[in-house]
């Protein structure tokens, strides 16, 4: 552990994810303000209880917490997949709380990419079509050159015409990551992206996420319960019972594990 790509060089100046002077944008891409969310099932448990958190542009943040701490709910609310009961969510400065369908979907499609534990690929489409799908749905002309570059980076060159059903779990997650990257979102939300993968495959995927942040300046928010995975992030936020209870900068697996213990025992 502890291996870290040093972030002193920005290679991908061609991809305008940063400011015009080439330095990464330091503003907040996602801002969650005093968000509460309760689920009617289970006696009205508050999944989120007044959470406020911001995610900086070009950063890699891990959201940690034990099962039922509300970390997935936070991600869903932040990504506009779910509506908070109260509070506000700003996505690239836009308040998505007031957006109705299909505007919400359009906003998400434009600004957000997803990587989920269960991949969520279209089985009936080839790798290539899966990767271009969000752009097609957005009605924009897909940037095929960039798509090919992304495929090269995730190491799937040559598998473009395969169906996801013929790929391994790690390969599928790479397709999901390539899809998220291909539309150049302002932020990628990853929900337990290594949850279904074995250790080394998981590590490769985390490496690709890290690389996306470092080389492309992508912002990544990753929900995980695995301290080793959190160690790849720049920052770790800890949730318990729907509240943010701790935060770590430059987390290592050991520090995260210790914090998790503390949080869980609480």
């Amino acid at each position: 552990m502890g291996r870290r790509v040093v972030r002193e060089t920005r290679l991908d100046q061609a991809f305008p994810m940063g400011n015009s002077d080439g330095t990464p944008a330091r503003g907040l891409v996602v801002e969650v303000l005093d968000v509460t969310k309760a689920y009617t099932g289970g006696g009205g448990v508050r999944a989120l209880d007044g959470v406020s958190v911001g995610f900086e542009a070009g950063s890699f943040c891990a959201v940690m917490g034990p099962s039922g701490s509300g970390k997935s709910t936070l991600l869903h609310c932040a990504a506009g997949l779910d509506r908070p009961d109260s509070g506000r969510v700003l996505l690239a400065g836009q308040d998505i709380g007031g957006l109705r369908e299909p505007r919400l979907t359009e906003a998400r499609r434009q600004r957000v990419g997803f990587v989920f534990q269960s991949y969520n690929l279209m089985e009936s489409l080839s790798v290539w079509h899966n990767i271009l799908l969000p752009q097609r749905l957005a009605g924009v002309r897909p940037d095929q050159g960039w798509a090919r570059e992304v495929i090269r980076r995730v190491g799937l060159t040559g598998r473009e015409d395969d169906r996801p059903g013929r790929l391994s779990g790690g390969q599928r997650q790479r397709v999901a990551l390539a899809r998220a990257l291909a539309s150049r979102p302002e932020v990628i939300f990853a929900d337990e992206p290594t949850g279904a993968l074995d250790l080394s495959t998981g590590r490769e995927v985390l490496g690709l996420l890290r690389e996306a942040v470092d080389q492309t300046g992508t912002t990544i928010v990753m929900v995980t319960h695995d301290p080793a995975a959190a160690a790849w992030a720049d920052r770790a936020v800890f949730l318990a019972d729907g509240r943010i209870v701790a935060e770590l900068a430059d987390p290592t697996a050991e520090k995260v594990a210790a914090q998790m213990m503390a949080v869980t025992v609480r």
Partner: peptide, 15 residues
């Protein structure tokens, strides 16, 4: 499930 995946990929309900 397939519809859900499409929604996640950015499809609106109308689409």
């Amino acid at each position: 499930r397939e519809f859900a995946d499409l929604r996640l990929a950015g499809a609106t309900t109308g689409q």
